[in-house]
Nucleic acid binder design. Structure first.
Lengths: 181, 181
DNA sequence: TATAATTTTCAGAAATTTCTGAAAATTCAG
DNA sequence: CTGAATTTTCAGAAATTTCTGAAAATTATA
C-alpha cells in the first residue's frame, strides 16, 4: 500500500489544515489518507504511507478516535485493526465543528458563568464585557446545538438560503404579528 | 498600570483559548487585556501587565492588527501608540470567525478547485471525496459571506430562532409553491 | 497456559514555535 | 537637519510540541 503521488498534495495540505483545526500536522495527514483511500487501512500501512513511526500512528489514531472521526473495522482471519472514516464527508465536517465548539466554547463559557456568579461588581467595565461575551457564547451554543440536530438535507436547504432567511422571517413577521397591531 | 488580579484569570484563560483560534497564548492575553481595560493601552503598559518583552508586544500588536481586532489611538501631546479593541464584542467575534474562515477554508478551496480542473479521473474514489469536500466548503463559504453582511440585530434574531427556522421554511414552502401543485 | 501478534506507552531526541533584548529603523519636535 | 522618543526587526535562547523506537502491556490463538 503506497501513497499514490496524486494524493500527496492533498495529504500534505490537510496536514497543514489539521493543525488549524486543533490537531497536529501528522494527525491531519492520517485523516486525509483514511478519507481518500477506499479500503480500510491498518496502522502499519498508515505508518508506511506517511513515513512515520508506528508509535506515532498509535497516538494519532487515539486522537482521531477522541474526535470521533474514524472507526475501527476488522477483517476475518486478520487480527489487525483497520480504520475507516466514521461517516460521510458531511458528517465528518459536522463532527469537526462540534468538537471544536466543545473545546473552544464550553470551557470559556463555564469560566464566565462562574465569574458572573461571584463578581461583586468592582470592575464595572470588565464585568460588562464578561457579560457580553457570556451572552454571545450562550446564544451561539444553543443555536449550534439546535442546528446540529437537523437532518443533512434541511441543513443544506438552510445554508443555501443564506441571509435569504431574513426575507422569510419578514414574511413570517407579517403573517404572525396580527396580535401586535 | 497594573494587571488587576481580578482579571488575571480571564487573561490567562483567553491566552489558552487564543491558541485555539490561530494565534498564540501571548497574543490571546494581549487581546484580553485590551478588551477588558477601559482606557487605551500603550505597548509598554501591555508589556508590564503581562511581564513580557517589548519586542514580543510589538509582534503581537502586528498580529492583532492583521486580524483587525485592535486599532491604534493617539493622545494629544503623547507620541506613543495606544490600542483599543476594533469594535464591540459582537463585532470582534464576527471578525475572528471571518478571519478563521479566510485562513482555514479559502486555501483548501482553491487547492480542491485546481485539482478538479485537472484530475483526469484515475482515482475515482478520491475524486469523489474531493468533489464532496469542495461542494461543502463552497456552500459554507457563500452562506457565511451572506450571513456576515446582516446587521447584528437580524443576525441575533436568526440565531435565537435556531432550527425553528425549519418550521418557518415549511410555512414559506406552503405559501409559495402554488405554482408547483 | 504459553506464545505469537498486535497495540500502547513513554523517556529522551528532534523539530518547531515563541520570546528576549539589543541594534536598526522610523518618526517627530525643535 | 539633529537627536530624542518610539517602534520594529531579528539572531540566538528558551520553551513547547511532536516524534521515535524499544520496552511493556494487551489480546487472541492454539
Amino acid at each position: 500500500m503506497e501513497l499514490p503521488s496524486e494524493l500527496e498534495t492533498f495529504v500534505v495540505h490537510f496536514g497543514e489544515m489539521g493543525s488549524r483545526w486543533g490537531f497536529n500536522r501528522t494527525v491531519g495527514q492520517m485523516l486525509a489518507v483514511i478519507v481518500f483511500t477506499e479500503e480500510a487501512l491498518n496502522a502499519d500501512q498508515i505508518a508506511k504511507m506517511l513515513s512515520i513511526s508506528r508509535g506515532n500512528v498509535s497516538m494519532g489514531i487515539k486522537e482521531l478516535q477522541s474526535w470521533q472521526l474514524i472507526r475501527v473495522h476488522h477483517k476475518p482471519g486478520d487480527r489487525k485493526d483497520y480504520f475507516k472514516p466514521a461517516g460521510t464527508i458531511w458528517e465528518l465536517a459536522l463532527q469537526v465543528l462540534s468538537e471544536r465548539r466543545k473545546r473552544e466554547v464550553d470551557p470559556t463559557l463555564s469560566l464566565l458563568r462562574g465569574q458572573l456568579m461571584n463578581e461583586p461588581g468592582e470592575y464595572q467595565f470588565a464585568t460588562e464585557r464578561v457579560k457580553e461575551i457570556h451572552d454571545l457564547l450562550e446564544l451561539f451554543n444553543t443555536w449550534f446545538e439546535d442546528i446540529h440536530r437537523m437532518n443533512p438535507d434541511s441543513l443544506k436547504t438552510l445554508l443555501k438560503l443564506g441571509s435569504g432567511v431574513g426575507k422569510v422571517l419578514d414574511l413570517k413577521e407579517r403573517l404572525t404579528t396580527r396580535d401586535k397591531s
